[in-house]
């Protein structure tokens, strides 16, 4: 059976890379004793994949992965066994059986981030709140430079084309949060660093800014 689950990546676990997170999940699964289905080939691995990579150093409360088990288990049994086996910062928060046939990574349509923006003074904060709603009103073009084996390619993209503003909310201590939905299209998506740069440029007198991924959205594209 195929299970799709949502999990957190909090605290120091934000420093675990994509590949290492994958291995961590695979090992945790092994320790539960639940039999996984295995890939074919030279070095077989349990069929478990992470939906969409997360940048190193960023926390999340909305990661997703899918796993194929060789037997049927109750959803709660799966979640409890896995959570016993997983470290504190990485815990499964929900899970459900998936009957479709498309791999999860191909079905992720958007990611969501919350940015907590902290200002130097109350005045700066008030100023910023006034213009916050209009943050996506103007284009914001950046140039992505890629270097591959001495070949430099440049691509211009418009940040705001990818973003939907979801919510702005005052938080404590000179801080408000701003939530974005970021589209994942055939041409890719945005990196959190790019969004941070964009937000930092738009507002003035930011003291510091932290980001957390809050969700991944998927649409069942099975036929």
């Amino acid at each position: 059976m195929k299970i799709i689950f949502k999990y957190t990546k909090l605290g120091k676990l934000k420093y675990i890379s994509h590949l290492d997170t994958l291995r961590l999940l695979q090992r945790a699964l092994r320790r539960t004793g639940l039999p996984a289905k295995y890939s074919e080939g030279f070095n077989p691995h349990p069929k478990l994949s992470i939906a969409f990579p997360l940048s190193l150093g960023i926390e999340s409360i909305g990661e997703m992965a899918e796993v194929e088990l060789a037997i049927r288990v109750e959803r709660d049994v799966f979640v409890n066994k896995m959570n016993d086996s997983l470290p504190e910062g990485l815990q499964i928060i929900s899970a459900s059986e998936f009957k479709g046939n498309k791999p999860l990574p191909a079905q992720i349509v958007s990611q969501e981030y919350r940015l907590n923006v902290c200002f130097k003074s109350n005045q700066d904060l008030e100023q910023a709140l006034k213009i916050a709603d209009a943050i996506l009103a103007c284009d914001y073009n950046i140039i992505r430079v890629k270097e591959k084996k001495n070949k430099v390619t440049k691509k211009e993209i418009n940040i705001v084309e990818y973003l939907t503003l979801m919510q702005i909310e005052a938080q404590s201590d000179l801080t408000f949060s701003i939530d974005f939905k970021v589209a994942i299209t055939e041409t890719g998506s945005l990196k959190i660093e790019e969004i941070r740069d964009f937000v930092s440029t738009y507002f003035q007198n930011i003291d510091h800014l932290t980001a957390i991924r809050t969700n991944l959205n998927f649409v069942d594209k099975s036929v």
Partner: peptide, 9 residues
């Protein structure tokens, strides 16, 4: 960074 964080199983 993961070289320095500890907290492993």
């Amino acid at each position: 960074p993961a070289r320095y964080i500890g907290g492993e199983l």
